[in-house]
Design a protein around this nucleic acid. Structure first.
Length: 538
DNA sequence: GTAGGGTTAG
């Protein structure tokens, strides 16, 4: 067209931008953007909205925002396009903030706006805001739309409120296969595999045909509860339905078999996928890694590279976890280089996984270096580093990091405190550990888990404060479990404390009468004390 | 003849 010299008009540009969004093709999109400016169509509201959508679909939310900010005129479509962009990137907070601005400008939301806002809530599990939107939707009468109903079901399910999802589903005037899929997916996400299958049965009874997404969500339900037999049954149905060549379904089957512990079956499905993509490779690599077969996982990575499939963030995370599980430091370092080459080292999740890999491989200095070089750190980053110090028994360092993290305004969570307490215990920092525990409960409002209690008993017990440990157990807000008593019993053994040992033994045996471990420890205590008859008796 | 939306893979 350009060769014939016919000048493109607004409609032409609109159509080609849509093509760029579909592929997606950022470079060509940018070229058209500059052509639009040259042609003087810049201020057209339709082209502006299309440009926003093109940048969104190409993953460039910043460029989309810039176009949006420079628009002379903005209507509901323009606002919806940019809000959808933030929602798709998982930036639900920013999306909801834009909605507030939109209302201030007196632009009325329509059905599509509500759909993308609900998706924004789903992306950040903002249940309260989702409920408020639900009320607005009812007021506007949009709840009769099937798409709105389906989105509400998905929003409630992703926010963890499966009851609300069910209520919306039941009240819907019209349902299609997506409605059923959304409900089944909701149950699968919550690990409620049985309910998911009940819905599937009901769906078929009502005469609806399952589609590819139905099978995908059902297989996820199987994976979540390791229901191998139902997974096999579905596999047969998929073959009968003719969907077996679908790559997404194939990848989901690989994942289902792997999560059910049948990596051989996973491999068989993998070998039959016609067009293996990065997800297929990642799924099978993750399958081997989850089974503790780190070497096989790394071998597959080599094959993947030979097939010229480009790994992405998820692939690297899975591979680093495989390295960490077998402490394969050399391969981990090689992966680190590959990650730097691919430009993905700035991703927070990748950084966190690198810290964890180095720490688990015993290279605390390398872990710290990655940690220091990270551009952005979240609570997981700090937890990974602190856990590394805890594993090395470096109590002071973990305490310093806890303080530093709090100074930087991050909230330590139960995982952080678990690591810090464990580090204190291994370093003999009794007073510090007790202070941290008190501060965790009183200043930070964290309810201690049984793991925290075990740590505290270990901390006191190791230091020889057995009476304090026993007293601590008597004041716990949850009933002490077997491990708590075993920890006290172990401490009693190490410090030759017969009375407390007997008490801990009695409580442990009450909880797990079949377990031989308490008997072994108590007999050791008696033996050390020279009580031969008691040893024989036990 | 032109713009934004629902379920679904690692």
């Amino acid at each position: 067209m350009q060769q014939t010299g016919i000048p493109p008009n607004k409609v032409t540009f609109s159509v080609v931008l849509k093509a760029c969004a579909m592929i997606p093709a950022l470079q060509q999109g940018k070229q058209f953007h500059s052509d639009i400016i040259k042609s003087g169509f810049e201020s057209d509201v339709i082209l502006g909205s299309t440009l926003v959508d093109m940048y969104v679909k190409c993953g460039c939310i910043e460029d989309a925002r810039q176009v949006f900010n420079n628009m002379h005129e903005r209507n509901v479509v323009s606002w919806t396009a940019i809000i959808a962009g933030y929602a798709q990137q998982g930036l639900g907070k920013e999306a909801l903030e834009l909605y507030e601005q939109m209302k201030q400008k007196h632009v009325q939301p329509d059905v599509v706006t509500y759909v993308v806002l609900l998706k924004a809530c789903a992306s950040i599990a903002a249940l309260e805001q989702g409920k408020q939107l639900h009320l607005d939707i009812i007021k506007s009468g949009f709840e009769l739309s099937v798409i709105v109903g389906n989105t509400l079901v998905g929003m409630y399910a992703k926010c963890g409120s499966i009851e609300d999802a069910r209520q919306v589903f039941n009240s819907m005037h019209e349902r299609d296969v997506v409605s059923w899929n959304a409900m089944i997916a909701g149950y699968a996400q919550q690990g409620l595999g049985k309910e998911a299958f009940n819905f599937y049965k009901q769906m078929k009874q009502e005469g609806l045909q399952p589609d590819i997404a139905t099978y995908v969500v059902l297989l996820k339900a199987c994976a979540s509860i390791a229901a191998l037999e139902q997974g096999r049954q579905l596999h047969l149905e998929i073959i009968k339905s003719g969907f077996e060549s679908d790559v997404i379904l194939g990848n989901t089957l690989v994942d289902m078999y792997a999560k059910c512990g049948h990596v051989q079956d996973a491999r068989r499905v993998f070998n039959n996928i016609h067009e293996l993509n990065v997800v297929s490779w990642t799924a099978i690599i993750a399958g081997y890694a989850q089974q503790g077969l780190g070497k096989e996982a790394l071998d597959l990575y080599e094959q993947m590279k030979q097939e010229a499939v480009q790994p992405n963030i998820v692939t690297y995370v899975v591979l680093l976890k495989a390295c960490a599980s077998i402490a394969a430091l050399e391969q981990g370092k090689q992966l680190h280089l590959d990650i730097i080459k691919s430009g993905l080292e700035l991703d927070v999740i990748v950084g966190n996984t690198l810290v964890d890999m180095y720490a688990k491989s015993g290279c605390i200095e390398d872990a710290r270096q990655v940690f220091n070089n990270m551009h952005e750190r979240d609570v997981v980053s700090w937890n990974a580093m602190i856990a590394g110090y805890a594993q090395q028994g470096l109590g002071e360092e973990s305490l310093t990091l806890l303080e530093q993290m709090q100074r930087e305004g991050l909230k330590a969570d139960e995982v952080t405190y678990g690591s810090v307490l464990s580090a204190c215990s291994h370093s003999g920092l009794v007073d510090k550990g007790c202070q941290v525990f008190d501060s965790m409960c009183k200043d930070h409002g964290i309810i201690p888990t049984i793991e925290h209690y075990v740590c505290m008993v270990d901390l006191l017990g190791r230091a020889g404060c057995l009476a304090e440990a026993e007293n601590f157990i008597s004041k716990m807000s949850v009933p002490p479990n077997f491990l708590v008593w075993m920890t006290l019993l172990g401490a009693a053994k190490n410090h030759g404390h017969v009375e407390i040992g007997r008490h801990a033994f009695g409580c442990a045996v009450k909880l797990e009468p079949e377990n031989a471990a308490p008997y072994v420890l108590l007999s050791n205590i008696y033996a050390a004390a020279g009580w031969r008859d008691e040893v024989a008796n036990i």
